[in-house]
Amino acid sequence: MIALHDVSRRYASDEVETTALADIDLTVDAGEFVAIMGPSGCGKSTLLNVLGTIDRVSGGRYLFEGADIAKAPEAELAKLRRDRLGFVFQSFNLIDELTIAENVALGLAYRSIPAKEKRDRVAAAMDRVAIGHRRDHYPHQLSGGQQQRAAIARAIVGEPKLILADEPTGNLDTENGAQVMDILSELNAGGATIVMVTHSPAHADIAKRTVNMLDGRILSSARRAA
């Protein structure tokens, strides 16, 4: 489904150039559940951002379903994110000024869908992660686990082919973390491809493959024994 060939990402500031990613070759097939692990600062999140097209590559090729999008115009990338991708963040990134239902609806805000269908899909997504009863609350009125479930609802309301999750359980306690992992497993079982950054070996075990990174490079890629 996606393939990175010799991808690099460098950040230049006034004084130093930092290489966040180097010589990345990675292929993810449709239906996979890939966990990316590694110490802090090794480039996991940068890799995820590149996969999600919210960060640009400095070099190399990024094939999404066969098309090279490394240098695609911004409008095309926005369309790709809108139609094919779903994001879940460690810090939830819900908008404080919007209610939970409105936050979830943002996932459909840039598509032309009839209002009624939008409402139905938002309700369905919220029910799927058991957050429907909190629809009219604001993010700061919810617990961390509830906020993350709302964020997952926002990610899946557009029925994306690829879900990118950046430490989705990082800010959660064990119980809430387990709930989130259950939801992700279900989504994967339902056909969604998932790439997840995590620090938790237990959560990485739930994925079908684990990619280990260090200093911006991929060290190993191991498939879980069936």
Partner: peptide, 11 residues
């Protein structure tokens, strides 16, 4: 940032 992640274009 979130809106763009969710597919909003610059326009």
């Amino acid at each position: 940032g979130i809106r763009k992640v969710l597919g909003a274009s610059t326009g």
